[in-house]
Simulated scan of single mutants.
Amino acid sequence: MTGPALEIDRISKRYGEKVALDEVTFDVRAGELFGFVGGNGAGKTTTMRIALGVLAADSGEVRFDGRPITHETRTSIGYMPEERGLYPKMKVLDQLVYLAELHGLSTNEAHRGAELWLARLGLGERRKDEVQKLSLGNQQRVQLAAALVHDPAVLVLDEPFSGLDPLAVDVMSGVLREKAANGVPVVFSSHQLDLVERLCDRVGIIRNGRMTAVGTVAELTRGASSRLVVTAPGTRPGWASTVPGVRVLEERGPTTVLELTAGADDQAVLAAALATGPVTEFSRQGRSLTELFRDTGATNQGDAA
């Protein structure tokens, strides 16, 4: 899909001797769901705050639609911070109207936007409640409504699925898919890697302030080791250990889980299994995003967000 993209171009940030971000670069294209993942302290939140202008980068540039982010541009961004930015004693509807007006909407437009998203997110009956009286999950929905109420041109969401029950996860997933389908670039961070893998068009992995991988899950795992599940009742423990490029991960009775290095011949494994008798299962499984993350970005040094 063609349209404006959000570009993070060689962003660096230091705190004294601590390097928080080191030339972080990626883009979020129009109509794309981009998952931004990394361990605690990897630099996700710092990157997002710089994209919003909450923090200033030491070097590099953030652009939207090919132009540097300005104050005017920021009013068209929907931002959902990890630390919730709601006024606890303010009523839900009043809060959304106020935030929409801060983004430049008229009072009537703000009310229409607030009522729309309260209804969409199942909060219509709580519109007159104070935020502090809502469950954490419903507060999360209000925070999402706050990011959407002004019909943003780009969405930047920091851990939007944190603390949500499965129904609320489905609701939020549907909203993000809808915004992307309408051409909005959507970037969100999450520790729920199965959800990122299911939702996102592309993924960026950050570790210690440096991007270690960007691409689709299929691109990132292509050529890497994969797993093979073989069920053959006639096999004995260790039967596959002599096949080149194969490592036995698990043996459960007649079922063996193997890891194949890049270029290993799965047909050699099948031949070895058939030599013992019938084979009732022979399936190849690619690496999951969780496994890829564990290999490239799970651990971090330091305290940068």
Rank of each mutant, 00 (worst) to 15 (best):
D165F: 12
H150L: 02
K89A: 11
A114L: 04
Q132I: 08
L274N: 05
S162E: 11
Q267M: 13
F282I: 03
V279A: 03
L33K: 08
A56S: 09
V214I: 13
L6S: 07
R210L: 07
S225K: 13
A181N: 08
A213I: 07
D22Q: 14
T107G: 06
T46D: 01
S225M: 05
G286K: 14
G3V: 08
A145T: 06
G245H: 11
N300F: 09
P68D: 00
V217F: 08
G277T: 01
R126K: 15
R227F: 14
E101Q: 14
T25H: 07
A224R: 15
M1L: 08
P160Q: 03
R67Y: 00
V203Q: 02
A145L: 04
Q285E: 14
V37E: 03
N208D: 13
D158M: 06
G215Y: 12
A119W: 06
G286R: 15
L121C: 13
R63V: 05
V184R: 12
Q143E: 09
S226N: 08
G277A: 01
T212M: 11
L155Y: 10
G137T: 10
D94K: 07
F161G: 08
L118I: 06
V28E: 00
V257D: 00
D9A: 12
V171D: 09
L195E: 13
V92G: 06
G163V: 10
G137E: 06
L193Y: 07
R29V: 03
V19W: 11
S173A: 13
H111T: 10
R177C: 06
T46I: 03
G66S: 05
